[in-house]
Amino acid sequence: MPPVFRFAPSPNGYLHLGHARSALLNFDLARRAGGRFLLRLEDIDRARCKPEFKAAILEDLLWLGIAWDGPVRRQSDHFADYRAAADRLAAQGLLYPSFESRAEIARLVAAEQARGRWPHDPDGVPLYPGVAKALSPQAVALLQRAGAPTAWRLDMTRACDRCGELDWTERGAGPGGDTGRVPTRPQAWGDVILARKEIPTSYHLSVVVDDALQGVTDIVRGQDLFWSTSVHRLLQVLLGLPRPNYRHHRLVRDPGGAKLAKSNGATSLRELRKRGLNPAEIRRMLELSPFD
């Protein structure tokens, strides 16, 4: 069967050069392999994802010369798919509810750090202290009846014990040059959130469900998501989903060496277009060869 690639931006801002690299790489690889290129909008965060950003993504991609196959998949239309996956994990005894706010978790972490060093995940975020695991069923029921905000977390220790050692096939390279068969390290992420009361999913859960439902065979994305693959491979095994190939590409960075990001005010493709740049010049800036 021909390979299937995808580009899956979050419409919470305008696309920049980093997005352009990923979109063009996926599009070029799909066309050269005689495969399909899909577009997905990861818009589960309904507060930050705006209609104007969704429209701008389509406009920017078409300007770059990128055409996608089939309809655009919008994650906000498919919460039932993610809820069903979370229910399957819960039925295996792998999810538990936590009720702390971000401020409360920060205080718990600070207390742990006062006793010594506290582990951080690969993105530099302190791991969840796991105190909700100690709640009695009666306490959990009381909090749920009171309508307390709920986050459903993966019991990482139990999940890893069930799956054993895993790896993925890396056709690109990680930040440290890792390539080929890469052993997973999902424990480095701690008990990640997979769903919330108001949003029945998370990035980790929705991305693996979508890739499976869309038949994605090759995932091409930036090196900043390299170690997230550990969590994704774990979820794929727990949910019985297919194993895709991965290719992580180098990031586009600003003159100071920081990766381009919407939150850092990275210059958008729309702004570059206003300055008179054309798609061929964007490709040269990204050191990507023309594609016929």
Score class of each variant (00 low, 15 high):
221 R>C: 02
227 W>T: 15
57 I>S: 11
245 N>Y: 10
240 G>P: 11
265 G>K: 02
252 V>T: 08
130 G>F: 12
202 S>E: 10
107 R>Y: 02
93 G>L: 02
56 A>P: 12
264 N>Y: 14
49 C>D: 15
26 N>R: 06
205 L>K: 01
199 I>Q: 14
199 I>F: 09
271 E>K: 13
230 S>A: 05
179 T>R: 15
66 I>D: 07
195 A>Q: 02
42 E>I: 06
41 L>C: 14
53 F>L: 08
272 L>Y: 09
139 A>I: 07
198 E>G: 11
164 G>C: 06
126 P>T: 05
218 D>A: 09
201 T>R: 02
211 D>Y: 02
260 L>E: 11
189 W>F: 15
110 A>I: 05
76 S>D: 14
269 L>V: 07
270 R>M: 11
14 Y>G: 04
280 A>Q: 05
279 P>C: 07
141 A>D: 05
167 D>S: 15
19 H>V: 11
174 G>L: 04
229 T>W: 06
162 R>Y: 01
38 L>F: 12
125 V>I: 00
43 D>T: 04
68 W>P: 10
135 L>Q: 04
243 R>M: 07
156 M>K: 03
4 V>P: 10
23 A>E: 13
232 H>K: 07
286 L>Q: 09
42 E>D: 15
78 H>I: 13
281 E>C: 01
99 F>L: 02
158 R>V: 09
200 P>W: 03
24 L>K: 06
37 F>M: 05
219 I>A: 04
275 R>L: 06
160 C>S: 08
123 D>G: 00
9 P>F: 06
157 T>C: 07
229 T>C: 09
231 V>N: 04
65 G>C: 12
109 V>P: 03
172 G>N: 10
113 Q>M: 08
221 R>D: 08
84 A>H: 04
45 D>S: 14
250 R>K: 13
151 A>V: 11
117 R>A: 15
46 R>T: 15
35 G>L: 08
236 Q>A: 05
62 L>R: 15
205 L>Y: 05
252 V>E: 09
12 N>Y: 10
109 V>Y: 01
251 L>T: 04
144 Q>C: 00
77 D>Y: 03
236 Q>W: 06
56 A>L: 00
53 F>K: 07
60 D>A: 10
105 I>N: 14
276 G>T: 02
159 A>E: 01
185 R>W: 09
85 A>K: 00
121 D>Q: 13
176 G>P: 12
10 S>T: 15
198 E>N: 02
115 R>N: 02
152 W>K: 01
146 A>M: 01
133 K>M: 10
